[in-house]
Computed example of a mutant assay.
Amino acid sequence: MPILESTYKPPFQFKNGFMATVYSGLLRKVHLDQERERINTKDGDFLDLDWSYCDASTRLSTSAKSDAVIILLHGLEGHAQRPYVTGTAKLFNQNGMDAVCVNFRGCSGEDNRFYRSYHSGATEDLEDVIQYCIQQKKYKTIYLKGISLGGNVVLKYLGEDRVIPSEIKAAIAISTPANLNGSATELHKMKNRAFAIRFRKHLLDKLRVKQKQFPERLKDKDLNEIKTLREFDEFYTSKAHGFKGATDYYEKCSSVQFLHNIKVPTLMISALNDSFLSPGCFPVKAAKHNDNLFLEMPNHGGHVGFIQKGDVYYNEKRALEFVNEHKK
């Protein structure tokens, strides 16, 4: 599919990628009423889902008023109340669709049950949510949207060797680190030092909570020695989820290797001034050879910072446009 020409033009002050990233991540506010529901995963853990509906009178105890839902996946150390997911949920609610914002394991304010938690390639949890939406909630039309780490999960899920449910009509991936090793390298550069320190602190805080449940596996000495995100992935992410190490985890979970197999219309939007993404995260060749993969690369936007006038961000508007174009 030809590369899409982007029409995104940010306000002047947000042409700077750092400013757009910081404002969107720390200062943006979105009001959205959500209802929490806990579901069990196939392996005996749980996921907390935060629902919002196109009809405010709908409650969990009743059947859905819409037959369409968008499943939203957050990024690294995010959660279902982050504005970059609630902004999309609100827009889709206003346009006749329900929304479910997924909290990855351990991200809903309560630690999950197992030593493992979530990672960039954990598509089995997305599969559980999709099946729940089809079997229990009876949705006939499902859209997927993942942001950053969540985008990698969405793309990997769609490109893996599995039968994709016919209810899934379209997908969107925003600011996706499709090449995890390349993105990890970028995050460790001086330009991203403030972000890397913040991510590491949040991740270690989570491990210290988990340490109370697994003190024999998470010792103070080991946690104190983790100085970088890569070291965190080497010590915990990779080993807790069955990989040999950080490099093995990055190689096996990078969605870029699965893009050729995507058969659902999928829109990728990644800004060329996104400091988190390496050149390998912009899959131009894959998009040109797959009629279902649409790649849009605005010059501006930073990392999930596609600010425009009004309350709706550019990537949210494009997500709605894209699903409307591919309704069946």
Rank of each mutant, 00 (worst) to 15 (best):
M1Y: 08
L4P: 07
K9G: 02
P10G: 00
N16R: 05
F18S: 15
V22C: 06
L27A: 13
L27K: 06
T41H: 01
Y53E: 05
D55S: 03
S61W: 08
K65D: 13
A68G: 05
L73H: 03
G78A: 08
T86K: 00
T88C: 04
L91C: 06
L91R: 03
N93V: 00
N95P: 07
N95W: 01
F104E: 07
E110H: 08
R116H: 11
D125A: 01
E127Y: 03
D128R: 01
D128I: 05
Y132K: 01
I134K: 05
I134G: 05
K140V: 07
V154M: 02
R162W: 06
E167K: 11
N179H: 10
L187E: 10
A196S: 15
D205L: 13
K219L: 10
D220G: 14
L229F: 11
F232Y: 14
D248R: 00
Y250A: 04
L259S: 05
L259P: 10
L259C: 06
H260I: 06
S270Q: 09
A271H: 03
L277T: 09
P283Q: 00
V284F: 09
V284I: 15
K288H: 12
K288D: 14
D291Y: 06
E296P: 12
E296H: 11
M297N: 11
M297K: 09
G302C: 09
G302Y: 10
H303A: 10
I307Y: 01
Q308W: 05
L320Y: 04
